[in-house]
């Protein structure tokens, strides 16, 4: 197995893309459960520039979600330094978070759910309303403004969650496997939708995913992580031009090359991880 990623065909992202919005330096994080300490993240150093889309890719148990929660300021690291826009991170309108399970408020309408993210901003009621209308339009949910989350399909629910994360116009968008709960078609449409919204917004995105294809299709950089303790193994420049046609892109040589490489690395990680269900198995076809 080669240990270095194949070189990108196109040149990597231009250096003047933007300043370093998120910086993590030698970050360690562990959790204690029932008296037992588990190291979740070990020695994470990572930086993300404005306007870049970064995927965190890796098998279960490599601390990807924990890394997002650290970057949002929901939890604090045991040691190491985290800076967002030059300061220790604090949850708020500067950072949008999209959760895997949507986390919509069941007793609030679509409109009120989206507006919810503006409550701590100090914007007036009328202005919040107006902005919510604009973002509902942006994600195509205007017709459902007065519906409750229980009445929406999975794809619509995640669009509400996306609009809620985008409405404060955050500099940083953190997304935790946002499309994992969706069916394949909806997922593909949501990826296209996300690309469209992100290109307007120009924020930095940290995108956690299990899917190799999704990581390549969406990202500028892929951070490959390994499990127990969660650590960064490699940062790969995707080097595919933008704007991308998500469907046609899959037959491009660079896409196939990256996919083969990443699949092989992840397979090795899973087969050599003692905590994995597939530990030590020979998955080569007979």
């Amino acid at each position: 197995m080669s240990s270095a990623a194949p070189a990108p065909v196109a040149s990597a992202a231009p250096p003047d893309r933007g300043r370093q919005r998120i910086v993590l330096e030698n970050v360690f994080k562990s959790f204690e459960r029932a008296g037992q300490k588990t190291q979740v993240l070990a020695d994470i150093s990572l930086s993300a520039d404005d306007g870049t889309f970064i995927s965190l890719l890796g098998p279960s148990g490599c601390g990807k979600t924990t890394l997002l929660r650290l970057a949002d300021g929901l939890i604090a690291p045991d040691s190491g330094r985290i800076a967002v826009s030059g300061h220790p991170p604090r949850p708020g309108p500067e950072t949008g978070f999209v959760f895997q399970s949507f986390r919509l408020i069941p007793w609030a309408t679509v409109s009120a759910n989206i507006e919810f993210a503006l409550l701590p901003t100090g914007l007036g009621r009328a202005e919040r309303r107006e902005r919510a209308r604009r973002y509902m339009d942006l994600v195509g949910l205007t017709r459902f403004a007065d519906s409750y989350p229980g009445e929406l399909s999975g794809g619509m629910g995640q669009r509400v969650a996306l609009a809620r994360a985008l409405i404060p116009e955050p500099k940083i968008l953190l997304m935790d496997e946002p499309f994992a709960a969706l069916d394949a078609q909806t997922r593909e449409l949501m990826q296209t939708e996300l690309m469209r919204l992100w290109s307007r917004l120009g924020s930095v995105v940290l995108f956690v995913t299990h899917s190799v294809d999704e990581a390549i299709a969406l990202s500028d950089k892929i951070v490959l992580m390994g499990p127990r303790p969660g650590r960064i193994l490699e940062v790969i420049d995707v080097g595919l031009p933008r704007p991308r046609q998500l469907f046609e892109m899959r037959s491009e040589p660079r896409f196939i090359e990256l996919r083969d490489y990443l699949w092989n690395r992840i397979r090795t990680l899973v087969l050599t991880d003692p905590a994995s269900d597939f530990y030590g198995r020979d998955l080569e076809p007979e």
Partner: peptide, 20 residues
């Protein structure tokens, strides 16, 4: 999970209590 969402949005403790 809703509480964590509200924290992430930047709502205060009181705000979370009243709204969630």
């Amino acid at each position: 999970q809703l509480i964590e969402m509200a924290r992430s949005v930047g709502l205060s403790r009181t705000g979370i209590f009243v709204r969630i």
